[in-house]
Design a protein around this nucleic acid. Structure first.
Lengths: 270, 270
DNA sequence: CGTGCCGTTGAACTTGCTCAAATCAGGTGG
DNA sequence: CCACCTGATTTGAGCAAGTTCAACGGCACG
């Protein structure tokens, strides 16, 4: 099972979208959505942290296109990065060449923590969409954080979140059947969009089925079949244009699907 | 596949072993081994970090027995913990009750980072062996770290390592067949022992097959079959007493086994 | 108007799971 | 000290989920 799946390097020509520094960008959705109860809380927090950083430290901004590498495994670690717009995949590689997408990150998420302990990045970070990445020198960040407790706490919170995300990914991969895992993947993506104040009833996957499959520990065929099956169950819809835009008419239905599919085996709890 | 597997709570009566604060303890091996080239480097580093912490902050020590919980998911976060001796599993639980062992930690490893962002621990940490856990208040740690850059950097290094460990676990689960995953699990354990200056040619698993299977995303039967198959291939040996003590006569043979088993599918790289 | 890549779908196959039975280790109580 | 009970482990047989292999259609690009 779960045979190694290729995470092909992307170099698709991106549609031409201008990234607006300081705005939410276009990560997987076209427009900003009116905030519902609390959906914008995280969005506000992200904006607050970014301006806190800008207030204390010089930033290096970089515009990236789909396929651009932000850093590669093995490069010396000097900077931490924060996604201002666009989104990014993180790929982990074993000594023998097996590789695995281990993270999918959006606006406000940090990159590069894995380099702190060893002095070299342990993974490769690649943009999946046009966007803007902000970079800070780790040593400068440390100095500023030592003087500004709020900044230090934010830094730690982000590392904490990174740990939690990794653990949740492992939980999904190990305990859910393929269809539920694909559904869970869509749910998490939609949740990420909502948390950032973006519309979350549709998602533009700028990843191939192979990349999604690699991330979820299954083959591209399984991803395709799972998506077809979700569409057949009317839990998602494909738009007339292409099979990479997915509409989620009812998020609760998606949740119900996950629950139902996860129950299938006799999950003896406790 | 990879159906949810039960991580039963242990309450086995531990053998009576006195944990000696400041020594390496007995995690999975009986005696300290003469250090080979660099094997003790991490061990020295752990000792250095622990004394750095002791120098700057009041510690709360707690003796734990097999089965004791160090903290539970949902409890308010106030402390970070460091394992001084013994070892510990970390269990993540989904809203619907699926649970998953997401980490196995040894002397010098930290616990509780996942609570920083949310203010509550996200996982449950349970001792698997008698040992001693040291605790520091997070707020005190922050204050001390702000004044002592070395301490701050060590804290960040440990969080960084936690992130890397999680990613490596995901890589294993997603890209290796069951037998290789069990072998990789043993290899990592042996490596952890060696890094701490302990003998690493034998391992005492104080986890049931079910717990190991849960950690590795497979059933207990698969763990048992994989271990039998490793023993048949003479890559490991069971000692006359019980099937929880495993000897690894040749670590390289274990590595070769993993490589060979991982190659089985046509792993198209790049 | 090819060529190449991506996605979908079907059919055969394989791995690992489920279910079941037998063995073994350890602890308990007589 | 021994019989017994309980839970862990092993092993086998059958099955099912998901993979592999293969064919086909669509779309973008040159």
């Amino acid at each position: 099972m779960h045979k190694a799946q290729e995470a092909l390097m992307i170099d698709a020509r991106p549609r031409l979208l201008k990234a607006e520094p300081g705005t939410a960008g276009l990560s997987g959705a076209q427009a900003i959505y009116p905030r519902d109860k609390g959906a914008g809380a995280r969005s506000d927090e992200i904006a607050r942290v970014l301006s806190l950083l800008l207030k204390h430290l010089p930033v290096r901004r970089r515009l990236v296109h789909a396929g651009d590498l932000i850093f590669e495994a093995g490069q010396p670690f000097n900077h931490l990065y924060v996604i201002n717009s666009g989104y990014v995949k993180v790929v982990n590689t074993a000594a023998d060449g097996r590789n695995q997408v281990v993270g999918l990150l959006f606006r406000g998420d940090w990159l590069g923590f894995d380099g702190i302990a060893t002095g070299c990045y342990g993974c490769t970070a690649q943009a999946l969409e046009i966007g803007e990445i902000w970079a800070w020198r780790y040593d400068q960040l440390l100095s500023a954080a030592a003087a500004e407790p709020q900044l230090l706490h934010e830094l730690h919170s982000e590392m904490s979140r990174a740990i939690t995300r990794g653990r949740d990914a492992l939980l999904s991969v190990c305990t859910l059947p393929v269809a539920a895992r694909v559904a869970e993947f869509l749910r998490q993506w939609a949740e990420s969009l909502a948390a950032r104040g973006l519309r979350n009833d549709q998602i533009i996957l700028r990843m191939s089925r192979a990349e999604i499959g690699n991330y979820l520990g299954m083959t591209l065929e399984s991803v395709s079949r799972a998506l077809s099956s979700l569409a057949r169950a009317r839990v998602i819809c494909f738009t007339e244009k292409g099979r990479r835009m997915i509409q989620i008419p009812d998020l609760q239905a998606l949740n119900d699907f996950i629950q139902a599919d996860a129950q299938a085996p006799g999950a003896i709890l406790q």
